[in-house]
Every structure is written in structure tokens, then in C-alpha cells.
């Protein structure tokens, strides 16, 4: 196991090789690796910027090419530092390019229970995994433009439905401030930080504990949930369906067409 990080973490003990890179140089490291995979010349000064030596990087590339089946596990250290989505995109490209030599995949490390399910469901229904805009009546995908933190910090949305999350406790302050400014609706088994800044809170049954359904494991294996308790509250599924039904009784904005122009941003 090769561990790449900006500092020595507890995972170092479990790893065979630890590559300590300079903070904010993820994109540079991945790009150099891509060049080495294709046997392209690499500038020594660019290698120095990364905090690693050319020997270390070349050794890493040789190991990856020799592997029978390689996996990149990546987390928010990659996607939330300088470069953001471009870092993730670069890593996915590196994994794709390594398939010219061996089997290689990239898998995001998941913090929350069924975030993998969210990817799978959104891909199934819209063709895209997250950050999807329906403002033109068809799905458009653009992380950085339609991703939640960016939308909230820029103030691009004027209402929010939050379910299975507590952004009021975890997001950057400007994003939380915007959630508090706009009408926010929160569905959660508990009254959370987000509930307190919301105009509407609805208590729901806890997923997998008192709400049945399906959840996806990180490697995209769907698993049935087996609740042990009966909740006095409705499930998220039931509440969202009821909100959807109530919205369906109102005139369809797309048919009216008049709000189309507003969404053509």
C-alpha cells in the first residue's frame, strides 16, 4: 500500500510506502505521474515543487504498472484543497490511462452511509452523479458551478431542501449564512443545527434503524436495510413523496414557460 499525504497520519503504520507531498501540490503530482506513465520527459524543477524526488515518482509508476489490479482510494484531502474538482478529474484520468497497462480503478472514500447510493441513483435518473441543474428542463452537470458550497457561497439558490445531511454544522460560514437567509426545509431524525436555521423541519425515521430500504456500499454493492425498530415518525421517502405530490398540484413552471428566461443564466 502506498500512502500519499501532506503529513504523517495514523495510516502511515499500515502503509508500505509513504509519499509526503507539499500541501496544494496534488494536481502537480498527478500530472507528473501521468507524464511518467506515458514515458514523457519531466522537468526537474517541477518535480522539486511537489516535495518528492523523480526516483520516488518513477518507482510509484513502475509499481502501478506492475500491479495486477490497482485501486486509488481518494478522499476530501484531494477534492477540497487547491484544484478541487480538477484534482479528482486528474486522478480519474490517471486511473483511466493506467488501463492501457493493467486493471486500475479509482474509488472515493465515503464518509456517510449511503452517499454512494446518491451517486448511483442520480446517474440512473439523470446520467450524472451529483451537482445537477434542472433549470432548463433537462439535466446539466457542472461541479464548481452547480455544487452546493459554491451555489450557497455565491447566493445562487433561493430555497433549499436538506435531507440526510446537516450542512448547518459542517459547511463554511458564508454557505450557512445563505441557508439561513433563504427558506430552508430540513428532514432529519433529530432537530439539528440545520433545523434551527430552517423555516420548516420535519422529523423522519432513522435510515436503517427504523426506516427500511436500500443502501449502497462504497464499492457500489446494493444492500437491503433491516430496521430493528418501528418509528413513530414517517420515513424520508414518504415525506419527500408527499412534498412532491403537493408540488404536482401547482401549475408546472416548465409548461408556463415564463420562468424559463429567469433560469437562462
Amino acid at each position: 500500500m502506498v500512502l500519499v499525504d501532506i503529513r504523517e497520519t495514523k495510516s502511515v503504520k499500515a502503509s508500505d510506502i509513504f509519499l509526503q507531498i507539499r500541501p496544494g501540490k496534488d494536481f502537480e503530482v498527478i500530472t507528473i505521474l501521468r507524464a511518467l506513465v506515458k514515458e514523457q520527459p519531466v522537468d526537474e524543477s517541477q518535480v522539486q515543487e511537489t516535495g518528492l524526488t523523480l526516483e520516488q515518482l518513477q518507482d510509484f509508476v513502475d509499481r502501478m504498472k506492475k500491479a495486477k489490479f490497482g485501486v486509488f482510494f481518494f478522499g476530501m484531502g484531494l477534492s477540497m484543497t487547491r484544484g478541487k474538482h480538477m484534482n479528482s478529474a486528474a486522478l480519474l484520468t490517471l486511473a483511466a490511462e493506467l488501463n492501457a497497462f493493467t486493471k486500475f480503478v479509482a474509488m472515493p472514500m465515503r464518509g456517510h452511509g449511503n452517499v454512494t447510493g446518491a451517486d448511483v441513483i442520480m446517474r440512473w435518473q439523470t446520467g450524472y452523479p451529483f451537482a445537477i441543474q434542472f433549470g432548463r428542463g433537462y439535466p446539466r452537470y457542472n461541479p464548481g458551478e452547480f455544487s452546493t458550497v459554491d451555489l450557497l457561497v455565491r447566493g445562487d439558490v433561493d430555497a433549499a431542501l436538506i435531507l440526510g445531511a446537516d450542512p448547518g454544522a459542517t459547511m463554511p460560514q458564508p454557505a450557512i449564512d445563505h441557508l439561513a437567509r433563504i427558506p430552508t426545509i430540513c428532514l432529519d431524525p433529530k432537530v439539528t443545527h440545520t433545523s434551527r436555521l430552517s423555516r420548516v423541519h420535519i422529523t423522519t425515521a432513522a435510515t436503517g434503524i427504523s426506516a427500511p430500504g436500500t443502501g449502497y456500499r462504497m464499492d457500489e454493492v446494493p444492500l437491503p436495510l433491516r430496521p430493528a425498530l418501528k418509528s413513530p415518525y414517517p420515513t424520508d421517502e414518504q415525506v419527500v413523496r408527499r412534498i412532491h405530490e403537493a408540488v404536482l398540484k401547482k401549475p408546472d413552471w416548465l409548461q408556463q414557460g415564463n420562468r424559463m428566461a429567469l433560469n437562462q443564466v
Binding site: 449511503n114 448511483v120 441513483i121 445562487d156 433549499a160 436538506i162 440526510g164 443502501g215 446494493p222 421517502e237
Partner: peptide, 12 residues
């Protein structure tokens, strides 16, 4: 432009 966000601790 309403936002629907979270989706992680709910069922498929």
C-alpha cells in the same frame, strides 16, 4: 432555483 441537497443518510 431551489436546491435539494444531502441525500447521504437516506435510502435509495
Amino acid at each position: 432555483t431551489p436546491l435539494v441537497y444531502g441525500m447521504s443518510n437516506i435510502t435509495c
